[in-house]
Amino acid sequence: MAVEPHKHCPICGTPIPLNELVCSPDCQKVWDARLAQTKRTRIILYIIIAIFLIIWAIMTFMK
């Protein structure tokens, strides 16, 4: 009783073939939205770190 190789949709958990990312267009929309949110969050984090580094450099070298 062997199960053919598969993986599960990261959104809803439905079994899908190994060569697919998600199971349906609805899950693809959710996946794309999550990727966009992750990218936006990462960019905001980098900007905040850069601002703190600039403020630190100004405070350090302006004494």
Rank of each mutant, 00 (worst) to 15 (best):
Q28V: 01
W56M: 06
P25H: 13
N19E: 13
I54T: 12
L35F: 06
V30T: 14
T38M: 11
L45F: 11
E4R: 08
T14C: 08
E4G: 05
A57F: 15
I48T: 12
L35A: 07
V3C: 02
E20D: 13
I16R: 00
W31E: 15
I43Q: 15
I49D: 02
Q37T: 11
L18Y: 10
F52Q: 05
A36K: 10
P5E: 11
I16F: 02
G13M: 13
I49N: 07
L18V: 03
V30I: 14
K29P: 07
L35S: 14
F52I: 11
K7V: 04
C12A: 09
T41P: 01
Y46Q: 10
T41W: 12
T41E: 08
I51P: 06
H8E: 07
I16L: 08
R42P: 00
A2E: 05
T38F: 11
P25M: 14
L18E: 06
L35Q: 15
T38V: 13
L18A: 02
W31D: 10
A50K: 02
A33G: 05
C12R: 08
I51Y: 00
H6L: 06
R40W: 02
P5C: 11
C27Q: 10
V3A: 13
H8F: 10
L53T: 04
P25I: 15
D32N: 12
I54C: 13
F61D: 12
I54K: 04
Y46M: 04
R40M: 10
I51M: 04
F61C: 00
I51D: 00
E4I: 12
I48Q: 01
C27N: 07
G13D: 15
F61A: 02
I48W: 02
Q37D: 12
I47D: 01
P25W: 13
Q28T: 01
P5D: 03
T41S: 14
I43P: 04
I47R: 06
Q28A: 15
I47Y: 11
M59V: 13
Q28H: 10
A36C: 03
A36Q: 11
F52V: 07
T41M: 14
K7I: 08
P17C: 04
L45M: 12
I44R: 14
K39T: 12
I55G: 05
A36I: 03
C23T: 04
Q28P: 01
I43V: 10
I48L: 11
A2L: 14
A50N: 03
I43R: 14
C9R: 09
V3W: 03
P5L: 05
F61N: 07
T60Y: 12
I54R: 06
L45E: 13
K29C: 02
A57M: 09
C23M: 03
Q28N: 15
T14N: 09
T60C: 07
D32L: 15
G13T: 13
I47V: 07
E4Y: 11
W31R: 10
L35D: 10
R42F: 05
V3R: 06
L45Y: 11
I11M: 02
N19Y: 15
I58Q: 00
L53D: 04
A50Q: 12
E4V: 03
R34M: 12
A57Q: 08
L45V: 01
P5M: 01
I48Y: 00
L45A: 10
Q28S: 09
P10L: 09
V30P: 07
I49P: 00
L18Q: 08
Y46H: 08
